[in-house]
Write a protein that binds this DNA or RNA. Sequence first.
DNA 1: AATACTTACAACCGCGCATAT
DNA 2: GATATGCGCGGTTGTAAGTAT
Length: 340
Amino acid sequence: MGRAPCCDKANVKKGPWSPEEDAKLKTYIDTYGTGNNWIALPQKIGLRRCGKSCRLRWLNYLRPNIKHGGFSEEEDNIICSLYISIGSRWSIIAAQLPGRTDNDIKNYWNTRLKKKLLGRRKNSHISPLSASSSRDPEGAEDNSLSNSAMERLQLHMQLQNLQNPISLFNSPAVWPKLNPLQEKMIQTLQSFNDNSNPLIQPMIPQPGQGQNVQLCEPKMDDELGNTPIPNASFTIPDSYVVPKPDTQQSNMFGVSTFQSDLDEFLNNNSHNNAVGMSEFDCFKAMEGSKDNMIWWPNDQFDTNSASSSSWDSTPAHHHHQSDQVYKDFASRYNIYAAVI
DNA sequence: AATACTTACAACCGCGCATAT
DNA sequence: GATATGCGCGGTTGTAAGTAT
């Protein structure tokens, strides 16, 4: 048995609100309040609207001190930081931005911020992978077919990298990038999560000798039997390097791009020590440091792994277990580093 | 100028949770 | 404890306005 509808669907108006309807609703609520019963409210004032529709209209447009559009750079920053930290919990994000509604922020993210994040990658993404059509005549077609999925995965990947416990966002040591307001928000969020959210738990790197690694393009070169061509090289602490189990290529390690994130961050920070952030740091760091990264979803070259093409930002738990870190990471994407 | 396509945003829908009965 | 009801949230859809062809 299904749930009873909240209103008589046949007798309620849908679609945009007229000025008259707005005036009726606003006048009533200004005078009497909502009465803690949205379902009954439209009948009281003679509106042929669903109570939920009235609630939405009031909360998003009619109630006082609502701001629309004109998002500032600082607001962009806050939205980005919180989205990376907690995902699409728009109501919590909205609570940190006075005058903004969750719906407004959600729309803003979906229509602008997300594209801003991906925008530069569209061009940079004409990478060796897609430019290699001479090697793989079907490659171009495959890529064009999967552009949409690739785009979503790219953004997911970027966010995943930052959500991953080995990213700078979970290392308080590199948090000075956050301004005091953001630090306060993180503290608030920690209290919301009762310290159980692995995304915002401190993660202290263990001392280690470090491994010198090179980021490279795995399959393309393997297929040709050539030595993988590195496109980035850096030293990564032991605690961040997780051996990949059960692989024929025993010298391959799954790593994050945290070091390039960190380098980029440190470079930026050395030029900008002000408390306020003058640039959209999250995007700047990503655009600056990751454009040379080559990566693609598992199912393009790993038939043994489950494909993860869903737009799922659910955080992985148990990140303190290194094998779990790797499994989670490797089950979604394949970025390899060859040990020198 | 007409049409197709894209973008931005308002609004709807269904589900999970909290509370009342 | 079981059920009914309403609220709040996040995902999705509909559509007007803008832009490209």
